[in-house]
Design a protein around this nucleic acid. Structure first.
Lengths: 238, 238
DNA sequence: GTAAAAATGATAGTATTACTATTATATTTG
DNA sequence: CAAATATAATAGTAATACTATCATTTTTAC
């Protein structure tokens, strides 16, 4: 019985194991004090995810978060200089986590086409299972990424923040995917644009599915993953 | 000489002519008082576009706008109940204007493939010439759409606002494009998703080109239009 | 041409936001 | 156990996102 359970959830169990040794790396200029370094820091991350999902990023404030975790607004400011930086932290964490899965799941795959498909799987799927042993709820975080990610870069400060390295994780992920596209068809001229279209487009299709279902074909039967796999196949076919 | 000029700019001249008779229709629940109905209203629209482009939507306030146009904050509130509604107005106007061009430019084209290509042109290109006879600067508005459009729907109120009809113009545009895709290949299963990917994806590629050039192939030589035309061709090929 | 209606302007006020600064109190560590 | 560090509590500020009221100007209707 336990063996069967272990088998069914083996991927997740392996990941839990690795994650307990590995730390998802977020660019350190994003925070003032590393939230992973203390109990309060972890509670800030854990509950900010839940609160942003609950009330939306626009209504989210450090004061409300403080109330939720029974802590003081001023204490949260010692970790992040603004709610915008906290969002950058959460999004960087998310993409680093996705990147980790992408690398892990596609490692050593001899068939490059299969590898690319696996990668598309990872970057376009809905997160449905939460790695319960950490303070970060990935299912909820995935929802935040769909609803709020664009807000992290659609700002007047994007160029200076980009120079500071706040978006390196995301850009690295897109490049990895783009390389996998080129591995399948080295003559395809738009590997970077296709990679960025897949990642951003998948978030968008997930959003449309929830809120504007009349302008997407994605629904409970057709996933963004399916759509983007077939789009990619066609796009890079010779 | 004048004839030559007329010839070169004939598309624009025809548009000016039509636009002086036609009014771009925006869902009327978006505003309290129609800004097209008064001089102050037009100045609000004209200068909000310039100010949002200048300082970004997040820093934009009605007080600052009032200062720019030598009018009072309270007067602006008589036209729009919030800056969010003003953004909805601007985006609806923009998509209605794009829709108009799409319908106009593709009308009566017998070759359905050519028609689709023309439509992709219209929805993905950078706006470079401003119809100078109106108070709306379309070149600047296009930049705002690239930087701010997502913020108009990535909110907790999206479902209720959608029910109120605030996004009808955009959805209608996507449907038109989707129909054109189906006209070329009626068996293609993802016409709606492809249409929404093209429109949203083009805005995204324009943004990347400006701010994250390392993760797009688009640049001064390769346009999002070119990328999406070739992507579409491949996607719907049998 | 004037009276009524409508539009705009000026001023004031409110609750909230997004912080900074200071001081007090816990907690950890050497 | 003292010193260092972390957290909490409180206060304060300028700005935001409005609402309300009243005064003034402009438009329109007869």
């Amino acid at each position: 019985m336990i063996v069967l359970l272990l088998y069914l959830r083996s991927n997740i169990l392996i990941m839990i194991n690795l994650l307990s040794n590995l730390k998802i790396q977020v660019p350190d200029k994003i925070y003032i004090k590393d939230p992973e370094s203390s109990d309060l820091g972890k509670r800030i991350i854990q509950h900010s995810i839940l609160l942003i999902e609950e009330i939306g990023f626009d209504s989210f404030t450090f004061k409300k978060l403080g109330a939720k975790i029974g802590s003081n607004e001023s204490s949260i400011y010692r970790y992040f200089e603004s709610k915008h930086k906290l969002l950058l932290y959460l999004t960087s964490w998310y993409w680093a986590w996705i990147e980790y899965q992408l690398v892990f799941a596609t490692f050593n795959m001899p068939d490059k086409k299969e590898q690319l498909f696996k990668a598309i799987d990872v970057v376009t799927k809905t997160i449905e299972e939460d790695v319960e042993f950490s303070h970060i709820n990935e299912v909820v975080l995935n929802k935040i990424i769909i609803n709020e990610y664009s807000k992290s870069y659609l700002t007047k400060e994007v160029d200076s923040e980009n120079k500071e390295g706040y978006f390196v994780v995301y850009k690295r992920l897109i490049k990895r995917l783009s390389d996998m596209i080129s591995n399948v068809n080295k003559d395809y001229k738009y590997a970077l644009s296709l990679a960025s279209t897949i990642v951003e487009g998948a978030l968008h299709q997930h959003f449309l599915k929830e809120h504007f279902s009349s302008i997407t074909d994605c629904n409970k039967d057709i996933t963004p993953t399916e759509y983007f796999k077939e789009l990619t196949t066609k796009a890079i076919s010779k």
